[in-house]
Amino acid sequence: MNDPLPPLRDVIARHDLAAKKSFGQHFLLDLNLTAKIASFAGDMANSQAIEIGPGPGGLTRAILGAGARHLTVVEKDARFLPALEEISAAWPGKVTVLEADGLTIDEATILSGENRVILSNLPYNVGTILLIKWLQAQPIWWRRAVLMFQREVADRVVARVGDKAYGRLAILTQSVCAAQLVMKIPAQAFTPPPKVESAVVMLDPLPDGTRFDDLKALGIVTASAFGQRRKTLRRSLGQAASQTTASTEELIAAAGLEPGARAETIDIAGFQALARAWRAARATQP
Protein backbone atom coordinates (compact mmCIF):
# COMPACT_ATOMS: atom_id res chain seq x y z
CA MET A 1 0.00 0.00 0.00
CA ASN A 2 1.30 3.45 -0.86
CA ASP A 3 1.95 5.74 2.07
CA PRO A 4 -0.86 8.36 2.06
CA LEU A 5 0.76 10.66 4.63
CA PRO A 6 3.05 13.68 4.23
CA PRO A 7 6.84 13.44 4.67
CA LEU A 8 8.01 12.82 8.20
CA ARG A 9 9.87 16.11 8.38
CA ASP A 10 6.58 17.90 7.73
CA VAL A 11 4.83 15.86 10.40
CA ILE A 12 7.57 16.61 12.94
CA ALA A 13 7.48 20.33 12.13
CA ARG A 14 3.69 20.57 12.24
CA HIS A 15 3.49 18.85 15.64
CA ASP A 16 6.70 20.47 16.98
CA LEU A 17 8.23 17.10 17.82
CA ALA A 18 11.80 17.65 18.98
CA ALA A 19 13.69 14.52 20.06
CA LYS A 20 14.28 14.24 23.80
CA LYS A 21 17.75 13.21 24.88
CA SER A 22 16.36 12.00 28.23
CA PHE A 23 14.27 9.41 26.36
CA GLY A 24 17.16 8.36 24.09
CA GLN A 25 15.20 9.52 21.03
CA HIS A 26 16.68 9.69 17.52
CA PHE A 27 14.32 9.83 14.55
CA LEU A 28 14.94 7.79 11.41
CA LEU A 29 13.29 9.79 8.63
CA ASP A 30 14.42 7.96 5.50
CA LEU A 31 11.43 5.86 4.48
CA ASN A 32 13.62 3.71 2.23
CA LEU A 33 15.64 2.67 5.30
CA THR A 34 12.56 2.04 7.41
CA ALA A 35 11.06 -0.06 4.61
CA LYS A 36 14.23 -2.16 4.52
CA ILE A 37 14.05 -2.69 8.28
CA ALA A 38 10.40 -3.74 8.08
CA SER A 39 11.22 -6.22 5.32
CA PHE A 40 13.31 -8.31 7.74
CA ALA A 41 10.10 -9.37 9.51
CA GLY A 42 9.22 -11.44 6.45
CA ASP A 43 5.65 -11.92 5.26
CA MET A 44 3.43 -10.08 7.75
CA ALA A 45 0.10 -10.62 6.02
CA ASN A 46 -1.07 -12.77 8.93
CA SER A 47 1.02 -11.12 11.64
CA GLN A 48 0.18 -9.18 14.75
CA ALA A 49 3.06 -6.71 15.04
CA ILE A 50 4.11 -4.56 17.97
CA GLU A 51 6.40 -1.54 17.95
CA ILE A 52 7.82 0.05 21.10
CA GLY A 53 8.71 3.74 21.02
CA PRO A 54 7.47 4.63 17.51
CA GLY A 55 8.04 8.37 17.96
CA PRO A 56 6.70 10.24 14.92
CA GLY A 57 6.01 6.96 13.13
CA GLY A 58 8.65 6.41 10.46
CA LEU A 59 9.04 2.70 11.09
CA THR A 60 5.32 2.49 11.91
CA ARG A 61 4.44 3.56 8.40
CA ALA A 62 6.94 1.10 6.93
CA ILE A 63 5.48 -1.81 8.90
CA LEU A 64 1.99 -0.98 7.65
CA GLY A 65 3.29 -0.49 4.13
CA ALA A 66 4.86 -3.96 4.34
CA GLY A 67 1.40 -5.42 4.87
CA ALA A 68 1.14 -6.21 8.60
CA ARG A 69 -2.35 -7.50 9.39
CA HIS A 70 -2.43 -5.38 12.56
CA LEU A 71 0.08 -3.19 14.38
CA THR A 72 0.08 -2.10 18.01
CA VAL A 73 2.30 0.88 18.79
CA VAL A 74 3.31 1.60 22.38
CA GLU A 75 4.45 5.16 23.10
CA LYS A 76 5.01 6.71 26.54
CA ASP A 77 5.72 10.22 25.21
CA ALA A 78 2.28 11.79 24.77
CA ARG A 79 3.65 14.40 22.34
CA PHE A 80 3.69 11.76 19.59
CA LEU A 81 0.13 10.52 20.03
CA PRO A 82 -1.52 12.97 17.58
CA ALA A 83 0.92 11.99 14.81
CA LEU A 84 0.35 8.31 15.56
CA GLU A 85 -3.42 8.77 15.52
CA GLU A 86 -3.07 10.29 12.04
CA ILE A 87 -1.34 7.09 10.95
CA SER A 88 -4.14 5.06 12.52
CA ALA A 89 -6.72 7.08 10.59
CA ALA A 90 -4.82 6.54 7.34
CA TRP A 91 -4.86 2.75 7.84
CA PRO A 92 -8.38 2.19 9.25
CA GLY A 93 -8.72 -0.81 11.53
CA LYS A 94 -5.06 -1.76 11.28
CA VAL A 95 -3.45 0.25 14.11
CA THR A 96 -3.89 0.35 17.89
CA VAL A 97 -2.15 3.24 19.64
CA LEU A 98 -1.32 2.67 23.32
CA GLU A 99 0.04 5.39 25.59
CA ALA A 100 2.12 3.17 27.87
CA ASP A 101 5.62 2.23 28.96
CA GLY A 102 7.05 -0.68 27.00
CA LEU A 103 8.94 -1.80 30.10
CA THR A 104 5.75 -2.52 32.03
CA ILE A 105 3.21 -3.75 29.48
CA ASP A 106 2.31 -7.43 29.02
CA GLU A 107 2.69 -7.86 25.29
CA ALA A 108 1.43 -11.45 25.27
CA THR A 109 -1.99 -10.31 26.48
CA ILE A 110 -2.14 -7.29 24.17
CA LEU A 111 -1.51 -9.26 20.99
CA SER A 112 -3.78 -12.10 19.92
CA GLY A 113 -2.97 -15.08 17.74
CA GLU A 114 0.21 -17.05 17.19
CA ASN A 115 1.99 -15.04 14.50
CA ARG A 116 3.37 -12.15 16.57
CA VAL A 117 6.41 -10.04 15.69
CA ILE A 118 8.33 -7.23 17.35
CA LEU A 119 9.80 -4.40 15.28
CA SER A 120 11.38 -1.43 17.03
CA ASN A 121 13.95 1.31 16.74
CA LEU A 122 14.63 0.96 20.45
CA PRO A 123 15.33 4.03 22.57
CA TYR A 124 19.03 3.91 23.40
CA ASN A 125 18.49 4.11 27.15
CA VAL A 126 16.19 1.08 27.48
CA GLY A 127 17.02 -1.16 24.52
CA THR A 128 18.95 -3.79 26.45
CA ILE A 129 16.36 -3.88 29.25
CA LEU A 130 13.57 -4.50 26.76
CA LEU A 131 15.55 -7.23 25.02
CA ILE A 132 16.10 -9.08 28.30
CA LYS A 133 12.39 -8.76 29.09
CA TRP A 134 11.46 -10.39 25.78
CA LEU A 135 14.08 -13.12 26.17
CA GLN A 136 12.70 -14.02 29.60
CA ALA A 137 9.11 -14.39 28.39
CA GLN A 138 7.70 -17.78 29.32
CA PRO A 139 6.56 -19.07 26.96
CA ILE A 140 8.12 -17.14 24.12
CA TRP A 141 5.18 -15.33 22.53
CA TRP A 142 6.90 -13.84 19.46
CA ARG A 143 8.03 -15.56 16.25
CA ARG A 144 10.61 -12.93 15.24
CA ALA A 145 12.07 -9.69 16.58
CA VAL A 146 13.67 -7.05 14.35
CA LEU A 147 15.38 -4.56 16.64
CA MET A 148 17.61 -1.56 16.14
CA PHE A 149 20.29 -0.88 18.74
CA GLN A 150 23.41 1.20 19.10
CA ARG A 151 26.05 -0.62 17.04
CA GLU A 152 28.03 -1.51 20.18
CA VAL A 153 24.99 -3.19 21.73
CA ALA A 154 24.12 -4.99 18.48
CA ASP A 155 27.67 -6.36 18.32
CA ARG A 156 27.30 -7.66 21.88
CA VAL A 157 24.01 -9.37 21.02
CA VAL A 158 25.40 -11.35 18.06
CA ALA A 159 28.99 -11.94 19.29
CA ARG A 160 30.48 -15.43 19.26
CA VAL A 161 32.93 -16.90 21.74
CA GLY A 162 36.35 -15.38 21.12
CA ASP A 163 34.97 -12.11 19.78
CA LYS A 164 35.90 -8.93 21.63
CA ALA A 165 32.19 -8.15 22.19
CA TYR A 166 31.39 -11.64 23.53
CA GLY A 167 29.86 -11.58 26.96
CA ARG A 168 26.74 -11.84 29.06
CA LEU A 169 24.33 -10.32 26.51
CA ALA A 170 25.41 -12.68 23.73
CA ILE A 171 25.06 -15.71 25.99
CA LEU A 172 21.61 -14.77 27.27
CA THR A 173 20.33 -13.89 23.80
CA GLN A 174 21.74 -16.87 21.96
CA SER A 175 20.51 -19.29 24.61
CA VAL A 176 17.01 -18.33 23.47
CA CYS A 177 17.39 -17.15 19.85
CA ALA A 178 19.34 -17.34 16.67
CA ALA A 179 20.76 -13.83 16.29
CA GLN A 180 21.95 -12.06 13.15
CA LEU A 181 23.17 -8.52 12.52
CA VAL A 182 21.36 -7.75 9.27
CA MET A 183 21.87 -4.02 8.67
CA LYS A 184 24.16 -1.18 9.71
CA ILE A 185 22.87 2.39 9.81
CA PRO A 186 25.15 5.45 9.95
CA ALA A 187 24.56 8.15 12.55
CA GLN A 188 23.88 10.69 9.81
CA ALA A 189 20.66 8.86 8.90
CA PHE A 190 19.05 10.03 12.15
CA THR A 191 17.66 13.35 13.35
CA PRO A 192 19.34 14.41 15.56
CA PRO A 193 22.37 12.25 14.68
CA PRO A 194 23.60 10.20 17.64
CA LYS A 195 27.30 9.96 18.42
CA VAL A 196 27.45 6.32 17.34
CA GLU A 197 26.33 4.06 14.50
CA SER A 198 23.26 1.87 14.85
CA ALA A 199 22.56 -1.64 13.64
CA VAL A 200 19.55 -3.88 13.14
CA VAL A 201 19.48 -7.34 14.69
CA MET A 202 17.08 -10.11 13.69
CA LEU A 203 16.17 -12.65 16.37
CA ASP A 204 14.39 -15.96 15.77
CA PRO A 205 13.48 -18.09 18.82
CA LEU A 206 15.17 -21.47 18.87
CA PRO A 207 12.87 -24.49 18.51
CA ASP A 208 10.97 -25.76 21.54
CA GLY A 209 13.16 -28.05 23.59
CA THR A 210 16.40 -26.37 22.52
CA ARG A 211 15.99 -23.01 24.25
CA PHE A 212 17.68 -22.68 27.63
CA ASP A 213 14.89 -22.20 30.12
CA ASP A 214 16.65 -20.76 33.19
CA LEU A 215 17.84 -17.29 32.26
CA LYS A 216 17.85 -16.26 35.92
CA ALA A 217 20.58 -18.79 36.76
CA LEU A 218 22.39 -18.03 33.51
CA GLY A 219 22.26 -14.33 34.27
CA ILE A 220 23.75 -14.84 37.72
CA VAL A 221 26.70 -16.97 36.63
CA THR A 222 27.49 -14.77 33.61
CA ALA A 223 27.27 -11.58 35.68
CA SER A 224 29.74 -13.08 38.15
CA ALA A 225 32.09 -14.45 35.49
CA PHE A 226 32.18 -11.36 33.27
CA GLY A 227 32.15 -8.92 36.17
CA GLN A 228 35.84 -9.75 36.49
CA ARG A 229 36.51 -10.96 32.98
CA ARG A 230 40.30 -10.71 33.23
CA LYS A 231 40.30 -13.20 36.08
CA THR A 232 40.01 -16.96 35.82
CA LEU A 233 36.75 -18.73 36.66
CA ARG A 234 38.34 -19.88 39.90
CA ARG A 235 38.61 -16.25 40.98
CA SER A 236 35.62 -14.64 39.27
CA LEU A 237 32.77 -16.98 40.28
CA GLY A 238 32.94 -16.33 44.00
CA GLN A 239 29.82 -14.16 44.10
CA ALA A 240 27.72 -16.74 42.24
CA ALA A 241 29.05 -19.58 44.41
CA SER A 242 28.25 -17.64 47.59
CA GLN A 243 24.54 -18.02 46.78
CA THR A 244 24.78 -21.83 46.84
CA THR A 245 26.01 -24.65 49.05
CA ALA A 246 28.88 -25.35 46.64
CA SER A 247 32.34 -23.90 46.45
CA THR A 248 33.59 -22.18 43.33
CA GLU A 249 35.70 -25.21 42.48
CA GLU A 250 32.74 -27.55 42.92
CA LEU A 251 30.56 -25.48 40.59
CA ILE A 252 33.27 -25.41 37.93
CA ALA A 253 33.86 -29.15 38.22
CA ALA A 254 30.13 -29.91 38.01
CA ALA A 255 29.96 -27.90 34.78
CA GLY A 256 32.98 -29.75 33.33
CA LEU A 257 35.00 -26.53 32.92
CA GLU A 258 38.63 -25.68 33.59
CA PRO A 259 39.21 -23.54 36.71
CA GLY A 260 41.99 -21.65 34.96
CA ALA A 261 39.84 -20.64 31.97
CA ARG A 262 38.62 -17.09 31.54
CA ALA A 263 35.01 -16.18 30.85
CA GLU A 264 35.57 -14.99 27.28
CA THR A 265 36.89 -18.45 26.30
CA ILE A 266 33.84 -20.37 27.57
CA ASP A 267 31.22 -21.09 24.93
CA ILE A 268 27.47 -20.77 25.47
CA ALA A 269 27.02 -24.48 26.19
CA GLY A 270 29.68 -24.19 28.90
CA PHE A 271 27.86 -21.34 30.60
CA GLN A 272 24.59 -23.23 30.37
CA ALA A 273 26.26 -26.17 32.13
CA LEU A 274 27.52 -23.76 34.79
CA ALA A 275 24.00 -22.36 35.24
CA ARG A 276 22.63 -25.88 35.71
CA ALA A 277 25.32 -26.60 38.29
CA TRP A 278 24.50 -23.34 40.08
CA ARG A 279 20.78 -24.16 40.11
CA ALA A 280 21.42 -27.67 41.43
CA ALA A 281 23.64 -26.37 44.22
CA ARG A 282 21.14 -23.64 44.99
CA ALA A 283 18.36 -26.22 45.30
CA THR A 284 20.23 -28.05 48.06
CA GLN A 285 20.24 -25.00 50.35
CA PRO A 286 18.27 -25.49 53.56
Rank of each mutant, 00 (worst) to 15 (best):
L33G: 03
C177D: 04
F212N: 00
I129A: 15
R276Y: 03
G93T: 15
S47V: 15
R144C: 12
N32R: 07
E250Q: 15
V74P: 00
P286A: 14
D267F: 10
G53Q: 01
Q48V: 06
M148P: 00
P207K: 12
I140A: 09
L31P: 05
L257A: 09
V182R: 08
E86C: 03
P207D: 11
E85V: 08
T128E: 06
A273D: 03
L81K: 11
D77N: 15
T244D: 00
V182L: 13
E114G: 12
G57W: 01
W141G: 05
R276L: 13
P186A: 09
E249D: 08
A68G: 15
R279N: 05
G24F: 01
A223Y: 03
S47T: 15
L203Q: 08
L28D: 03
I185M: 07
V11A: 14
N115L: 11
A240Y: 00
R160Q: 04
E249C: 02
G42D: 11
V158M: 03
D204P: 01
D101R: 07
E197T: 06
N125T: 05
R143N: 12
V126L: 14
L169A: 04
D208T: 14
K164I: 11
S22K: 15
K20F: 03
D101K: 09
A189V: 03
A280E: 13
V161T: 15
R262S: 08
V95E: 00
H70M: 14
K36T: 08
Q174D: 10
A49E: 03
D106C: 07
A100P: 02
P192Q: 10
V158W: 00
T34M: 04
F23N: 08
R144P: 01
I129Y: 14
Q285N: 09
